[in-house]
Write a protein that binds this DNA or RNA. Structure first.
Lengths: 375, 375
DNA sequence: TTGCTCAACACAAACGTTTCCGTAACTTTT
DNA sequence: AAAAGTTACGGAAACGTTTGTGTTGAGCAA
């Protein structure tokens, strides 16, 4: 939209529209939006000149430009993005599709993404699906109708069919996946190395002496669940610890079920001495149940989470967990996406960016000398 | 937009565009968006008929309508909201302006709001300002340029000037405030009774025997801070407890400063035996510092927070706090807002909806018989 | 003077819809 | 059978911009 050296009109607007002096303009402020036509009429020039002045086109005399910009400010003119989008076939809007907004993860990603988008003059249309497939599909339709210039998506835990996302590919609208990606689509992705992170988390449990390590896994349909599970399995194998099916429970991330699973696990004749949870909410809920059972953490059972969510530092004991660079994920995905827009689709490359994680060791796995709660 | 009995076109789209049989249509799928013109040409009818069929206008023969809808599905047609907005002067978009996305509060509000909006066929443009005034102003400009049909806003902690919001009033775009409202603007608001909630929270401390109750207050520029402070003061007065300036510390909600204040308070020659924090993050951070100092909660000092944020239930001891109906706030505000759209501005009433709160009593104020961490 | 370039602007088409108005072909009423 | 009404559709204007092309007059070299 901007090809010239003059800056676009983004001036601050005064509260009351008025002209300088002798020639007050009477608009019905309530319902008449100021358009370039109003400015043109007022200044006795053509719409095109006004448009060029506002967008910074060079071929407009500086005094004309000045008069236009001043009047625009006075009238509190705001560009109508609808018509601009219509004619330029660009909406300057990026869609972000996330499965939930409850944990701090996705909101934080959105913050990072929005920051990058704003720098480039784009705004974002956020929609969350409550981890519901039908809602996710409906949300992507909205994105299409609103002609987003690209979408960033993390799929719901129910999503097995990707037709609603492939439409974007066919229409030449760039997609970038993050976190929960779709393996069968060859588009850019921003992830962390879930396998590696899980491997090291479990290895940490092994190295601290645990032998029977349980895993509350995520739904198998999500790639991140499978990767974390594989990291778990390989870490055990590496250290010659048998992988027992009894100790691996995939579930649908519905927290209310955690209680059942934990009770089941701790009721086994040979209960686990450690638990690797697929994410922090699961780990935290597990800790609650375990405390309820009167068991000690980490003495009776050590816990490792995944995500370093809000709260994992102040729960007691502190939760050992995998830290992911949340905001960075959002920024990276958005940067990748913006790089695809306006670029020939033939040049798109399905890169996968893998961001670094870090195992944060806290009291849920290693007894720590914390300040006592007694003096 | 919809006045007739037939449903609008929102059909599910197949992945590959194709016509039934003998007459395949060759469109450059990549860059040509399907328009009603394409459908009209293919069927040898006029754009107006196609438009009417898609919007559900009654005066189109059912077989014609059927053919149009079928072709639209096959071609994967999606309405271009830009042109619709342009002609109807409605964007079907609601702007939501929030100060932050870190605590769970605002994301939750957005979820509630989005749910209501979706029901009415609106989508939302969310923007968070990082509690920065300039960003908030920039964000509202974006909302204007995008011709939102209304905005829901909770102001930043820095906002003292409301010109950027008054513009909406002048342009006849409805505003609804929630949580952090602007007192000087007569528009609908959705709040909780901060005064009353704070009063009861503090009274709870008094009734449990505390005499020296400190208050880590929010910035005075925010009405919610002042109201909570007043509730605190009046509860003390009611019970003949002197209000001591030493024990009231207003701060800018920058959590890194909490440590200083707590150390200061606990270092007083006559330290407080209770703390009322302006919000949960403040309370939780205070608890961390207090534990670090080797003090016991609630024996040495009782803590009350505000908000019932994520984590306040599993921190130890559990945080006594004021629960607010978060999702309900979002839903109520959105419902109020949607009610104003398309209604004559003369009929707008600046109602203030006050939602109920509830004091949740946990271990941070009352020693509770919790299951021990030892067996 | 003539011809040319160039700055500065005007004119008009275009983007994809909606919607008012018009009209032909039927259908019903008289 | 003529008049009136109805059904189903086409034509065209309009929304607020951007942008390619046309036009005007000034400045300058020949």
């Amino acid at each position: 939209m901007q090809h010239w050296e003059y800056s676009q009109y983004y001036g601050n607007a005064p509260i009351y529209a008025r002209t300088g002096g002798k020639n007050p303009i009477a608009y019905d402020v309530k319902n008449h939006q100021i358009t370039i036509k109003d400015i043109a009429r007022e200044l006795n020039i053509s719409k095109s000149t006004v448009s060029r002045a506002l967008t910074g086109h060079p071929s407009v005399k500086s005094e004309t430009r000045k008069a236009i910009l001043e009047l625009a400010e006075q009238l509190d003119y705001q560009r109508n993005m609808m018509s601009i989008s219509l004619i330029t076939n660009k909406s300057y809007t990026i869609g972000i599709v996330v499965p939930e907004f409850i944990t701090s993860f996705f909101p934080q990603v959105v913050v990072g993404a929005q920051e990058e988008a704003a720098k480039a003059g784009y705004n974002v249309l956020v929609s969350q699906s409550n981890d519901d497939y039908a809602t996710e599909v409906a949300n992507t339709k909205v994105m299409l109708a609103n002609r987003v210039d690209g979408i960033m998506v993390s799929i719901s835990k129910e999503t097995r069919n990707f037709d609603h996302l492939k439409i974007f590919q066919r229409k030449g609208i760039p997609i970038v996946f993050f976190n929960r990606v779709c393996d069968e689509m060859a588009v850019p992705k921003v992830v962390i190395d879930d396998y590696d992170a899980a491997y090291h988390a479990v290895e940490h449990l092994v190295l601290s002496g645990r032998k029977r390590i349980a895993h509350l896994a995520g739904p198998e349909v999500l790639a991140i669940s499978r990767k974390r599970l594989n990291g778990y399995i390989d870490a055990l194998k590496k250290h010659q610890i048998p992988v027992s099916d009894d100790l691996v429970i995939p579930y649908d991330l519905n927290l209310s079920k955690v209680k059942i699973y934990i009770k089941h696990l701790m009721g086994l004749e040979n209960p686990p001495d450690a638990l690797f949870a697929v994410n922090d909410p699961t780990a935290i809920e597990s800790m609650r149940v375990i405390k309820e059972l009167g068991l000690r953490i980490p003495e009776d059972i050590a816990i490792v989470g995944f995500g370093n969510n809000y709260g994992s530092d102040f729960i007691e004991p502190g939760l050992t967990t995998v830290n992911q660079p949340v905001k960075e994920i959002g920024k990276t995905a958005m940067t990748l996406l913006l790089g695809l827009i306006d670029k020939d689709t033939a040049q798109w490359r399905a890169v996968t960016k893998t961001l670094d994680t870090e195992l944060i060791i806290r009291g849920s796995t290693i007894k720590q000398e914390l300040p006592q709660s007694k003096r």
